[in-house]
């Protein structure tokens, strides 16, 4: 099996390879810009900073990639980040040691994801509305649990895990977490039947169902996975800021979806790759760092992320339209509109 399952049959393989090449070029360009802006840019310290600042987004982008490939979306992840921090902090204050509290928080994440999955697959509701509802619901639960309290006293080992690096190397612990998760997602998505089933769902749910893919249960499990990973991201965020507040993670969904789409995943489903998304994570991290070095304040970075999101969808769309126009020109005139689906309309 040489061709990864996730590549579209309709587009030539080269065009997707080109998307990832584009990301590499973009990344190199940003790195060059960074070295021009500051001589500290390439320092080990800066590398540790710029990577650890996006690790929550990075790990949440992995399940989000699969969810968007199946044609769904999960907008609730940012609220699960807040809820996870709130539950973790509250359990700790109640006297539960963190090694026991962390698995409970991950289970809470799984339950939240299960609620999303259940409403989407069993009740047949659109993922967009369901997760918009749980976006409010999970944040609301975090508000109820924590109120205006900020929990800022954590064990040293925990905060060290949040922003520390392994034994004086420039590698943050959280990067290791991301690397392991990314490797697993990469292997499963591009090397196993599971990954092919995910893509099959994204291309056509009916066709997948008739081919024996357990569509509902697979979509359900992806939402559960997304919930668990978002809870893990919430734990990491609490550790990195050494604080649990009810507004932890607000606005993060935008960044997660941006990274996934920048990574070349089709918002309409059926297409995407994990390596692309991993590259996009680093493009985002370096871009944020370069903007900061250039003196752009963090508030304006929202504009940059928003523009990046819109352009990462416009560019492939333009390429697709150009290709379609080219095909039409090659094939001659396109068929008249009346010839398609005539008689299928019930007026």
């Amino acid at each position: 099996m040489t061709a990864p399952a996730v590549r579209s049959r309709r587009l030539p393989l080269a065009s997707l390879a080109r998307w990832e090449t584009l990301l590499v070029i973009l990344l190199v360009g940003l790195l060059v810009a960074g070295t021009q802006l500051s001589r500290f840019f390439l320092s080990a310290n800066n590398f540790a900073n710029l990577t650890s600042s996006v690790m929550e987004v990075a790990i949440m982008a992995l399940p989000m990639t699969l969810i968007i490939i199946t044609g769904d979306i999960d907008l609730s992840v940012e609220s699960m980040v807040g809820l996870a921090g709130a539950v973790l902090g509250t359990l700790m204050l109640a006297g539960l040691p963190l090694p026991l509290a962390i698995p409970i928080v991950l289970i809470v994440g799984g339950l939240g994801g299960w609620l999303n999955g259940l409403l989407v697959t069993r009740a047949g509701l659109p993922a967009l509305v369901v997760t918009l509802g749980t976006l409010a619901l999970f944040r609301g639960l975090a508000n109820v649990i924590l109120g205006p309290t900020v929990i800022s006293v954590w064990p040293d080992w925990f905060t060290e895990f949040g922003f520390g690096t392994i034994a004086k190397s420039p590698i943050p612990y959280t990067l290791v977490v991301f690397a392991v998760l990314a490797a697993v997602f990469w292997l499963v998505t591009h090397g196993t039947w599971l990954g092919r089933q995910v893509v099959a769902i994204g291309k056509s749910k009916d066709a997948a169902r008739y081919s024996g893919v357990p569509v509902a249960s697979l979509r359900n499990w992806l939402f559960i996975l997304s919930g668990v990973v978002a809870a893990l991201a919430g734990i990491i965020l609490a550790a990195r800021f050494s604080s649990a507040r009810n507004d932890n993670g607000t606005g993060m969904t935008l960044t997660v979806v941006t990274v996934v789409l920048l990574g070349g995943v089709d918002i309409n489903g059926g297409k995407g790759s994990i390596p692309g998304v991993v590259l996009a994570v680093f493009v985002l991290a370096v871009l944020q760092n370069v903007l900061r070095l250039a003196g752009v304040s963090s508030e304006f970075q929202g504009i940059a992320v928003g523009l990046l999101l819109v352009f990462s969808v416009i560019v492939p769309q333009l390429a697709r339209q150009a290709k379609a126009a080219l095909d039409r020109a090659r094939r001659g005139r396109r068929p008249p509109a009346g010839s398609m689906a005539a008689g299928e309309i019930n007026v």
Binding site: I73, L128, G251, L254, V257, T258, L261, I267, N268, E299, F300, G302, I303, V305, G306, L307, L309, V310, V313, I314, Q317, L318, Q321
Partner: peptide
Amino acid sequence: FRIPSIVVTLGTLSIFRG
């Protein structure tokens, strides 16, 4: 550009706020 509205307005949500 025939882009899904959710993507565009998610982008402009943060662009307009910026």
